[in-house]
């Protein structure tokens, strides 16, 4: 496969995942803004921080409020990470790697782009927002389904998956990075409604609130939330799950190409940090440091894959 194609596939998947994650962040932000309007500015600020878009936002908008942040994150073309921008980038990458995609997969991406471009064409009212967010999630699900159902399980598929999990791991880690303090025992007032709402937001940002409730039977503790998002292998957005998948997909690439490259070592090391650990020791060593290290290493892994598989030269 061409190095350029591998890069295009990986970035297509990253952009698709990013769009979906952004929609989720907006959803969680909207929820908390509706239920606790007093703290809404603070909440939208942390949504922007999680999306890594605070600086760009400040360049364009005067103040942080719901409608501006929503507009910025969903449909602002001046924001390269807005859902509209990333779906366009995803589709451009898909066009670039058109020969590596099945007809169904390409069509799903193309239709996703057409649908979202239309859905995000004009500023939307709060009433229309839930429907739009649902459309974003649904279109992404259709793309995922088309890929899952029609693509050969070869290097093409593995690069797509690697892109998905690099992005997803980064997203979950960012949620934790911005909100880690509400999980710390020193600050948290156990049982207070404030922290409960914050914990819920964390879970909601990762579409994990229902699963969490189901597993823990309504017993929400900061430790359990952190454990669920960092170490729980059943949870498809947890760091451990993403890392296991990265190791797995890189392993398959190694088998197909008959070699081992530097990125294999780094992925395994990253994964190793999440196996055989318990959440208590992570807290003892510092949750925030742990998350920051993870984000840095996950980025480094992305760069290493890029050079190991010759995306650019």
């Amino acid at each position: 496969m061409l190095g350029k194609t591998a890069g295009g596939l990986l970035w297509m998947a990253r952009y698709l995942e990013r769009g979906e994650n952004t929609a989720r962040l907006v959803d969680a932000g909207l929820r908390i803004a509706l239920t606790r309007s007093a703290a809404s500015e603070e909440e939208w600020t942390s949504v922007l921080a999680t999306a890594g878009a605070q600086a760009r936002f400040a360049e364009i908008y005067e103040k942080v409020d719901g409608p501006s942040v929503i507009n910025f994150l969903l449909r602002d073309r001046d924001n390269p990470s807005s859902v509209l921008s990333v779906i366009e980038s995803a589709r451009n990458n898909a066009r670039l790697v058109r020969t590596a995609l099945t007809r169904e997969a390409w069509e799903a991406v193309n239709v996703c782009w057409m649908t979202l471009r239309e859905a995000l064409a004009v500023r939307m009212s709060n009433d229309a927002l839930p429907n739009t967010l649902r459309t974003i999630r649904q279109q992404n699900a259709l793309v995922r389904g088309a890929m899952h159902g029609t693509m050969l399980r070869n290097d093409i598929y593995n690069f797509v998956r690697i892109g998905t999990f690099l992005e997803r791991a980064d997203n979950t880690a960012r949620i934790l990075d911005v909100k880690y303090y509400v999980l710390l025992p020193s600050v948290s007032l156990v049982g207070s409604s404030l922290d409960n709402a914050q914990w819920e937001t964390i879970l909601r940002s990762a579409s994990a609130e229902r699963a969490f409730g189901w597993l823990y039977g309504g017993e929400t503790t900061p430790l359990a939330v952190a454990d669920f998002l960092i170490l729980d292998r059943r949870m498809p957005r947890s760091l451990a799950f993403c890392c296991a998948k990265l190791v797995d997909n890189l392993h398959h690439l190694g088998l197909e190409y008959g070699d081992r490259r530097q990125c294999h070592d780094l992925a395994e090391a990253l994964h190793g940090r999440l196996t055989g650990r318990d959440i208590q020791t992570i807290f003892e060593h510092g949750l925030h440091e742990f998350v920051l290290d993870f984000i840095a290493d996950n980025n480094a892994l992305g760069r290493l894959i890029e050079t190991d598989y010759r995306f650019n030269g």
């Binding site: 496969m1 591998a6 058109r98």
Partner: peptide
Amino acid sequence: AFLADQMGAELVEGHDLRVVDGRIAMRTT
């Protein structure tokens, strides 16, 4: 893209290619 896809051939641009050992070669993974 359509023809490359239908033929099962790679779709390359100039910057994917260079001269290697007296042949034109494409940069693969």
